[in-house]
Design a protein around this nucleic acid. Sequence first.
DNA 1: TATGAATGAGTCTTCATTCAT
DNA 2: GATGAATGAAGACTCATTCAT
Lengths: 188, 188, 188, 188
Amino acid sequence: MKEKILVTCIQLFEHKGFSETSIQDIVDSLAVTKGTFYYYFKSKEEVLMVIHRMYIDTLLEQQNKLLEDGALTNKDRLRGLVEMLVTNITPLGKSARVFHRELRHLSEDHMKEARAKRDQVRVAIEKVIVAGMENGEFRPDVKADIVTLGILGACNWSYQWFKPEGKYSDLEVSEVFIDMVCQGITPK
Amino acid sequence: MKEKILVTCIQLFEHKGFSETSIQDIVDSLAVTKGTFYYYFKSKEEVLMVIHRMYIDTLLEQQNKLLEDGALTNKDRLRGLVEMLVTNITPLGKSARVFHRELRHLSEDHMKEARAKRDQVRVAIEKVIVAGMENGEFRPDVKADIVTLGILGACNWSYQWFKPEGKYSDLEVSEVFIDMVCQGITPK
Amino acid sequence: MKEKILVTCIQLFEHKGFSETSIQDIVDSLAVTKGTFYYYFKSKEEVLMVIHRMYIDTLLEQQNKLLEDGALTNKDRLRGLVEMLVTNITPLGKSARVFHRELRHLSEDHMKEARAKRDQVRVAIEKVIVAGMENGEFRPDVKADIVTLGILGACNWSYQWFKPEGKYSDLEVSEVFIDMVCQGITPK
Amino acid sequence: MKEKILVTCIQLFEHKGFSETSIQDIVDSLAVTKGTFYYYFKSKEEVLMVIHRMYIDTLLEQQNKLLEDGALTNKDRLRGLVEMLVTNITPLGKSARVFHRELRHLSEDHMKEARAKRDQVRVAIEKVIVAGMENGEFRPDVKADIVTLGILGACNWSYQWFKPEGKYSDLEVSEVFIDMVCQGITPK
DNA sequence: TATGAATGAGTCTTCATTCAT
DNA sequence: GATGAATGAAGACTCATTCAT
């Protein structure tokens, strides 16, 4: 039941937004009563928090695997991180959209937690880039911090326009992003 | 007064979000009464619409100047567009954040209008890239549509983290973005 | 202008009802501003009162002519009163509907006045019937007071269904009413 | 509770009118909170609709009994219908007044429904008269449609003046109406 | 586990009215 | 005569949340 509530909430929050989704909407979708909702969660915000946590923890897990794999080059790692961020398979895609859009509706504490975790992704990208700069995979003169934010922006923004049934798959999109970021768009 | 209401609304919508800003909040900030608000605007949504329109129209105007200037190379134009998007001079920065975050709270009609205009920016970037591909300024094998969305993402996302008083100026940020996109981050 | 406001108000009150008609509606219909309205009338209720007064005074005037005409039989007089009530010539028809429907929105004092005048019509009918009973024109055993209220009901109700462009004219309707009331519908 | 809300609303709508009765008035009368009202009804209009439906359905039921009773003459039936309409036994009397006065505040759909049902009463009276004309109970030359509207008017109007504690009972009033309509007020 | 009645603060919005100009 | 900016009380309705059962 807790699971079912979560899934329903992800759908609704993604579709209508957190503020615009009422408890009534949620319990109607599930054909249960309000009491049931409050038996499992103590507030609407708690549901949001759980969604955030599930999403970001999944991400961080993936990320750690990538970072710890000693066999990979830094470019491979960067590719892996970009793919991870762009990947849009349900239900992670919906969670991702909720994550990026509804961060502000978390309570003070939960927001700090979410931000801190979100930052780990940024830091990971930045570290990979810096490591690549040091071992010659990347140009030594790039501004790693800003480039990182640029890459993050490109990836996170994809949740705003990406359509799974569209012209390109999520993998193709990440490939293009990686190519753009690594080779640039001007001819050599 | 209409002007004052708008400015206040931009502040509040940016700070607390559209849904979370009540008419009461707005009129309290201005030390007027609700009646006054509704004398100038017929709904909260109308204010949002005006903010959107002001922002996007300003953008499109700048954009048109860039596109019509025959003396520029396509790379110059791209740089111009990126600079235009990243530029965060007050009060456009707040408007920009409101624009990107609260699009969904517009009414059906206004949303269509806003989306159509927003799309003009995307189309402009894409056209510049395609033109550059044709005249050899850019590689002939890039996927212009996705690259465009990547660039847009990097730029639009900057409203989430850019601080005018921070380490880099908005011009520096756009320079890094342009460099990243054009040269790539790998050495030649 | 005062005249124009009145005419417009009759239209609007008749169409939407008094409570549902806002000052804004009124001034919009006239393409003037609220200030103008309040220059001529000191409240919405005052307009309603004037409409009531105009209608009922017109009625009472007609009624008095009928009653004072010594040449008429009581049956003639009754016919005259019924015709007077049913008559739906514009703009009296709309005023009549407003009169009957919106009485309750008058202020205490105005309501008393309106009720008193309205009562004069009832009393007049009753007197004509009693006079007819005394001189043999009407049956001596009718309950004049209730019959009066029945006749009034039939007439006043006609404003709810009568359509000038309908199958019968207002004169035909009153003829039928008079016939029904005088002869009854059973055969002799 | 739903029952209690309905009873209270009938009182208030009858006394002050629908538009003039606020939700606050209603819940204050019941010593509950607004939330409670909206737990049972989803709008003020819904309450009005229920009141209309209860009243008119009760009426139509009574009416059908009358029409189906083969032992009655048409005059009996007409008497029955008039009695039914004039009868003012609590709480139907208040409902009746609300019904006739507040019809216009129903939503489009509910209004159509109410009007259709209200029309059934008119049609029933007309049919009884026509049937009486055919079997010789009533004069063959009466205009059944207008006479019907006259009778309806007399009856419906009674809700405006009838007082249960007054000089005449509701049964006496209907008797006078029937006598007036059938015999007429002129001597044979 | 789950219900459903009840709460009460809060939402956006409308409105009749006033008044300085 | 007429304007239009401003008021503030009141309107209908929503909502997250609680709690006895």
